[in-house]
Design a protein around this nucleic acid. Structure first.
Lengths: 228, 228
DNA sequence: GATGGTTATATCTATGTCGGAACAACGTTC
DNA sequence: GAACGTTGTTCCGACATAGATATAACCATC
């Protein structure tokens, strides 16, 4: 099945939620110098754009400093609050993009212990600590490739000295090398190999090649599961 | 500013995108045993629900096995494809939820080197390797608290033996302890403390208390930035 | 004081979405 | 063969969204 996850980003405050459309409007105001030209450049109705800004400001505080009259008839520019809001939006969007873009490896298993959200899951590769909000029995754990850190088996801290609760010794199955980033597939005894995204730099320093032994570790708080 | 990120999850294939509304419909079919009752239980139009299912199936393959006539007049049930799709949706939703819910610490800095997406950023705490798709100059790095792993300063692998490209020695500033999970704020020399989400178990094993020395490390591929 | 381009506000209309109703087709059961 | 509750299909209308238009208010500049 050739599927691809995607998402819409929102930032909510006080009942109103700012979306990508609002972000585009704010950016256009910043670029064009006036709400009028901004709406125009986006092919959108000035009237609604103006009302929307007012609505957003009721929730987020002053966003656009608007002047009417004066030289050039007036104009508008973003406040610092608006710029912070835009940056926050972009940061969370980038975070979501990471989730959507980066490969995951799915680990099937069964919950054998639960302490609040924190569970212990029995999988083919061994026990895994993970966050599963609710449910019991069978689960699927999702491991983001950017959450897996690889270390040299000869120089890996003992479990008591690291906050990475999950660790597996495995052997490199294959490597997909990009310009600067490499995707390492590691056999840890499960059906599918564990994918780890590391810099090409790291791959070289660790001397990773197909067949290499390596320790893959990941945090319990970074592995999320769903009950199936 | 009391803001809160949120998101909508989608899964796209072949031009059509499945959203949470579609997921609700599929789940209702699974629960009710018929498309008719499913639409009814959701307070939605049967006609549109049926058309939507057909539309989804054109993109995702067979999702609902529908029988008309027969005992009870017929009925519908989900295919394995549909169940896999629901699980995939739920996994990515859980991933997004992590991004939206888990605290981030924002590190401001300037790009001093770029190799493709991979950049080196100069921050108050020192140089950080991160992924920043484009731009140069000033950036904001976003560090998810679940991406930071803590280790004992006495037993931390040397940089050549780990794929965690970023490491900082810091001191625990404060600890917010939950039932099973603790949020550790670590002073690493930046304006704001670095937040790390670890299990209470890990906190205890590492003996972390305010004032403790600790090494915080995180992967370059897990720290994403935006240019500001 | 006239000018000009802006903000502010109200209203109309086109469009798309979605629930609702109506009806045909289906096939097992009785 | 009648009954029944489903799927499949068409069409209508209510509603929300958003562009389009018109008009008033604003104010530094000339």
């Amino acid at each position: 099945m050739d599927v691809r996850p995607s998402f819409d980003t929102y930032i909510g405050s006080d009942g109103v939620t700012l979306d990508s459309r609002d972000v585009a409007l704010l950016r256009a105001i910043d670029r064009e110098g006036s709400l009028n030209n901004a709406a125009d450049s986006l092919g959108r109705s000035y009237a609604h754009a103006q009302r929307r800004i007012v609505e957003l400001e009721e929730a987020f505080g002053s966003l656009v400093e608007r002047r009417r009259g004066g030289s050039g008839g007036g104009g508008s520019e973003l406040t610092d609050t608006a710029r912070e809001l835009l940056a926050a939006f972009e940061r969370t969007r980038a975070g979501f993009e990471g989730v959507a873009d980066i490969a995951e490896t799915v680990l099937a298993g069964t919950i054998v212990e639960r302490e609040g959200e924190l569970v212990t899951v029995e999988t083919d590769a061994g026990n895994v600590r993970a966050l599963v909000p609710e449910g019991d029995g069978d689960v699927q754990l999702s491991l983001r490739a950017d959450a897996v850190t690889l270390t040299d088996p000869e120089d890996t801290p003992v479990p008591e000295h690291t906050s990475a609760r999950n660790r597996f010794l495995g052997t490199v199955e294959s490597i997909e090398s990009g310009e600067r980033i490499a995707r390492i597939a590691i056999d840890i005894g499960a059906d599918e190999p564990l994918l780890a995204l590391v810099t090409e730099d790291s791959r070289a320093k660790l001397g990773l090649e197909p067949g290499s032994d390596v320790v893959a570790s990941f945090k319990a708080t970074a592995t999320r599961g769903i009950s199936t």
